[in-house]
């Protein structure tokens, strides 16, 4: 399997206040880093899950990859060609290959267009009208399990799950190689969540595209993703295969996230690792390890020294001075 997407040292910055105001207030740094020094690779047919709390930069990272948000530095290579810094016109070619599904299933559909219009939009934008439009719409609706009599409906006449299916159909339309799914299950009730996830993995085994799933919901990714990357304050704190992450999390943050997932086993008494406090503001990143104010295992070194990314085993990367399992838990 070849590399589909390679992201190296990606950094996305936002300006918090206008340039003039920043000078007036003598702020040294009017910028915040929403995504900082993120590197990862994705292979064809693979599902990578980005997991993190709200504000951890996972959505921004997804949007940077499809070019909706400008990345300041680093590189995004898709099938070997650099995407960062491309203009809208040059990006358009890659938007056939990369599709994105957005968080809110209904709001991400154009309010005054019918289901037919929503699904046809990618064909109209990319001028691929050579195929029979109506038949394409029906084929896509079949793929995502929408009855044909829905073609004339407007978004406000759809339920969340139906709107999500329209979103999936639209993402599928141009047979992309990568689909970025931002919270594909948000706002859906649990049974519909399951249906959407099954639909997505069914389509993956059929067409072999890759998914970059952005979520805060660990159980959602457990059965659908091959690898997981945990984000905290815009950085990847840990990445590894799904099995590794769930079996032996190495970063205290990952451990705490896993601890927050309820398990349906009354006999099991688990050590709950609680994280105290709130996510720090991106404007005031903690010194040293950015997780130290909330880390139950924080030591003196964590307060001063920023940890580098270390490789625990093949494909398991963690950014922590004292990775769990071979560090302080024994002490």
């Amino acid at each position: 399997m070849s590399e589909l997407l390679e992201v190296e040292g990606l950094r996305v910055r936002f300006r918090t206040s206008g340039a003039l105001r920043a000078v007036a207030r003598r702020e040294d740094d009017p910028w915040i880093d929403a995504v900082l020094d993120v590197s990862f690779r994705m292979r064809e047919g693979e599902t990578l899950a980005l997991v993190g709390e709200s504000g951890s930069g996972k959505t921004t990272l997804g949007r940077a990859i499809i070019g909706l948000v400008r990345a300041q530095s680093g590189s995004i290579r898709f099938e070997g060609s650099e995407l960062r810094g491309l203009g809208d016109r040059a990006y358009k070619a890659y938007r056939r290959e990369i599709a994105m599904m957005f968080q809110d299933p209904v709001a991400s559909l154009s309010p005054r267009r019918t289901v037919r219009g929503q699904i046809r939009e990618p064909f109209e934008v990319h001028k691929s009208a050579e195929r029979d439009g109506e038949a394409e719409v029906r084929r896509l609706m079949d793929l995502v399990g929408l009855p044909h009599n829905f073609v004339g409906r407007f978004p406000h006449e759809l339920s969340g799950g139906q709107a999500r299916r329209v979103g999936v159909a639209r993402a599928l339309a141009l047979s992309p190689k990568l689909i970025i799914a931002d919270e594909p299950t948000a706002g859906l009730d649990v049974s519909v969540q399951g249906e959407v996830l099954n639909l997505m993995s069914g389509l993956q085994s059929r067409f072999g595209m890759s998914y970059l799933v952005i979520t805060h919901n660990l159980p959602v990714v457990r059965h659908t993703s091959n690898r997981i990357a945990i984000m905290y304050l815009g950085r990847f704190v840990e990445q590894g295969t799904t099995a590794t992450i769930f079996r032996s999390p190495a970063h205290p943050y990952t451990e705490a996230l896993l601890g927050a997932v309820p398990r349906p086993d009354p006999r099991r008494r688990r050590k709950t690792v609680s994280i105290e406090g709130e996510v720090p503001s991106l404007k005031m990143r903690p010194r040293g390890c950015e997780f130290h104010p909330r880390c139950p295992y924080a030591q003196e070194r964590c307060r001063h020294e920023t940890p580098a990314t270390t490789r625990l085993e093949e494909g398991h990367l963690v950014r922590c001075h004292f990775p769990l399992g071979n560090g302080h838990r024994t002490s």
Partner: peptide
């Protein structure tokens, strides 16, 4: 609204 982002992600230009 999000549908504008969705349209831009598809490659829809501002005029369209």
């Amino acid at each position: 609204q999000e549908f504008v982002l969705a349209a831009r992600a598809l490659g829809t230009g501002w005029f369209r």
